[in-house]
Design a protein around this nucleic acid. Sequence first.
DNA 1: GTTTAATCTTGACGATGGAAAGAGGCCAAA
DNA 2: TTTGGCCTCTTTCCATCGTCAAGATTAAAC
Lengths: 205, 205
Amino acid sequence: MTRTKARGYHHGDLREALVASGRKLLEEKGIRGFTLRECARRAEVSHAAPAHHFASMDDLLAELVRRGFAELTAAMTAEVQRVEDEPAARLVGLGVGYMAFAAANPTLFQLMFSREANRIELKEGDEGAEGVRRLQAAVVDEVLAHASGELRQRAADFAWASMHGFITLVLEGEIGGRDSSRALKTRGLAALAAMAETVVRLARS
Amino acid sequence: MTRTKARGYHHGDLREALVASGRKLLEEKGIRGFTLRECARRAEVSHAAPAHHFASMDDLLAELVRRGFAELTAAMTAEVQRVEDEPAARLVGLGVGYMAFAAANPTLFQLMFSREANRIELKEGDEGAEGVRRLQAAVVDEVLAHASGELRQRAADFAWASMHGFITLVLEGEIGGRDSSRALKTRGLAALAAMAETVVRLARS
DNA sequence: GTTTAATCTTGACGATGGAAAGAGGCCAAA
DNA sequence: TTTGGCCTCTTTCCATCGTCAAGATTAAAC
């Protein structure tokens, strides 16, 4: 951000610049419109320069996905920590953080959850969505502390599935049409409330 | 399928051949590995031949998506009609048909629900997921016949979201890991049961 | 049977991802 | 401070891609 021009032969921090321009490009042009050469162009560097920082285009995409998961986990954590109320409300907060990230980074979010269809393989040691899963399981367990492992798994499955499905359908315009704005928030909160109630109900069965 | 070789200058039914090879290719190579030239190659036709049947590669992809939605609707309808039981069971059946199609056509399914991220625009008059929505709303209304419009919408949102989210996470390996086979069916049915129960409970509130 | 229109092929263009080889500059060891 | 090595970046090249234009071939219409 600070450096503007008058750089020498070396860029200085090309790796970060590529990540930044790549992320913007992804949202601008979509998954299939993403181009390594355009990333290089925006970083004001020759088209072959990225090769010294990323083995391939898919390698850069994998890095974007990796950082996306880290951010998503952070967003959920922040939102949960703001809620000191009962566990059910914390479950809703979890979903709010999840949906807020997805709404702010729609294309990246879709890429993060269509790695199979896009043949994007994470690097060894990359946790992927594991952080999300752990955080979610922890909050679900606040409600189902003394339940069986199977029940807790079912509740976690269900909680993740319903919030993931809702925001996905919203991003596609299947829920709420084109205006994914205010009218949507009420429907989203209603869906999260129904999800939380269901988890609570599972705890009582 | 019937014609094997010895075709003349004209193919006979290139449009259908491209749809067929395209669909296979999509599952084989993934969304970003999809190539118009490879489709043509598999149909044993020159690389420029598809242009006479599809204006562009995206046009062919849009056609695959269109047919996917038609098939998905048909699969759901067939599964629902097999269930004559109570509405809640029919709701589960709906989800079974949905998930069965997605499991059998994972890449196409992901493409159908990431059109925004992949910049795939349907043609004018193409209903997209409208058939799915209508069918789903009808079955949900069997449970919520005498409820308010807003409540029925919330229930429909929630039902679709939870079954869509579950199968999506399964296809990505986030639920059930690599073996999306038997152990998964029990978890999938559990999720669908929880969804149906929630809808029924909404009817009583 | 002739004309017309649709279908398919060939060839070309610009853009892409990637590989190879060389130029430029940083930095540590002398 | 000089020098040698290594990392970074550029240039050039290649195969492949989607798309376009022009011509060849055949089916269909008249």
